[in-house]
Amino acid sequence: MAAETGTPTTLTLKSNDDELFSVAESAAILSVTIRNMVEDGCAGGVIPLDNVDGKTLASVITYMNGISAIPADEEKKKSYRDKFLSDKDFETLADMVLAANYLNMSCLMDAVSAKIAQVMEKKSVGWVRRKFGIENDYTPEEEAAVKEEHKWTFEGVETDDDN
């Protein structure tokens, strides 16, 4: 359907815990999911986002506004992203990466994924397990076999106290 003259420039988003947010359409369409809704003419009323809670959505909207205010300058955008993510803990990052995935925002998804990856960089298996609370469900024999298979990746990595 062709765009009508009364197309709203502000969209209302609703989180799964019923919080409402107003956001400029130009910023919101960074999300391919929302953009598709706008293009299909389904964005007239309130847009329900069933997989995102209010706290995360507020954060994502801050990001949408911040990044869309920056003109096409990749370096400035990158430094905005770095700053935006710098004080987020892992729980928040996990919420954001899921929201970015649901909203289909590849730039946010990549930035958050890279941020999580950064935590794991050059760290030992034991350290990563403790950091993220990952439970080791290998038997000692199985673990030894996997380690043996990828032995080269353990050279020069600090050994852990717990394995």
Binding site: M120, E121, K122, K123, V125, V128, R129, I134, E135, N136, D137, Y138, E142, E143, V146, K147, E149, H150, W152, T153, F154, V157
Partner: peptide, 12 residues
Amino acid sequence: QEDAVRTSVLSK
């Protein structure tokens, strides 16, 4: 590559 492969030991 090295860091990615090493995650195979984290859990099944």
